[in-house]
Amino acid sequence: MSAATHPLLRVDRVVKTYESTAGPVHAVQSLSFDLERGAFAALVGPSGCGKTTLLNAIGGLDRVTSGQIWIDGTEITALNDRDTIEFRLHRIGFVFQAYNLVPVLNAWENVAFVLELQGVGMKARRDRAYELLAAVGLTGKELQRPSQLSGGQQQRVAVARALASRPSLILADEPTANLDSKSTETLLDIMHELNRQEGTTFLFSTHDQRVIDRAEQLFRLDDGKLVASN
């Protein structure tokens, strides 16, 4: 698949089935869609509809039962564990519901965390981290640890971290679930702006109406199936 001529993300007949004591659970059922480069999209639906499962599969965090997922011309469902980790490290950014910053690293070190794993030199990663912290409105907070930041500020650090390595795709799992309205609006403004300025593709998993309102493309899931998209 050529990156220039094909969508950034292609989900092709993906099935994810868990085994449980009560029998098999079909979390995702033959689900397919494409996502264009530079999209600001969201997977929406009620709790338990398979949003997070699908997001995990797209991020290479979980294996699919069948089907294929292509990102930027690479079929990640065909990669072995080692290459999946490498791919994730270089090509995908994550924003989690609970921020999940490393508590013993300060703000800029958290942003530079992925760059450090990639082998980027000290000066380059510091410059990039400071630049991104400025972009998310956290100038002056670079040396503060997560415990010294508010929830909204921590989530902004997490967004900056996700952007640090200039990934093709950012996956955001319920990023606003723990934020108040003001922080949510601020965060969405920042992400939307970065989406426009840097052309970074965002795919959210959410049932937050404020995120849904901002999304330019929606994939509605129900019971593991894609029931609507626009």
Partner: peptide, 20 residues
């Protein structure tokens, strides 16, 4: 790049361990 990554990872591990 692999060597730099390995060096960075070792430093990161040491720093995280120390701060932990």
């Amino acid at each position: 790049a692999r060597t730099n990554a390995a060096v960075n990872e070792a430093r990161l591990a040491l720093r995280l361990a120390w701060r932990n």
